[in-house]
Amino acid sequence: MRDLEQCRAEVFRRSEEKIRENKRMRRRALTLCVPLALCLVIGAAVWPAFAPAAKQAGNDPVAVTPNGQVWDQETEVQYGDGAKEAPQAGAVRIETVEAAELLRSLAPANDMDDNAGEAVVTANAGQNDGKAIGASDGAPDAADDRESRFILVTPEGEETYTLRGKVLTCETEDWQRVLTEEEETALRLVLSADGSR
């Protein structure tokens, strides 16, 4: 058994050792925490810069809701129950008689090349950008490139159209024509009326 003096010396020796160990642990914790905190701060600062880019990357106007319905964010129109019925991105589904009649009236009467006086476009519908149009009464304004895509639903089936500026393209029957100001206004009117329904 040690005498009291030895025990006292041992108490002080151990306490110094413990204090040193505590300091070491504190330093170790700091060396771990500081880089972690820095990473968090930098991450928090950098994240907002990435967020808009991510939003733009996924900027699809057509969104599918969790219950399977499709929501067109541009026109704010909701479509059927499944994605199959949903139009392609940006397409509006129109089912009114007026729209059908109007589109029928706009369609070329015979073969596309026979439409004298009409600006008939023979460019491939898939590549049409509204600029490769040979029009007899003047090419459409290049700046006027508002594009609407819509699907006309009739008892006979569906026809997909694209209206880019003044150029109306029927993708189903593969024809194109340049509309007059009045025709374009009338068509856009019908489209906006159908889209908001």
């Binding site: 025990c7 041992e10 108490v11 002080f12 151990r14 306490s15 413990k18 204090i19």
Partner: peptide
């Protein structure tokens, strides 16, 4: 001894 060193 350990208990006493805790006091310090």
């Amino acid at each position: 001894i350990d208990a006493f060193s805790d006091l310090i």
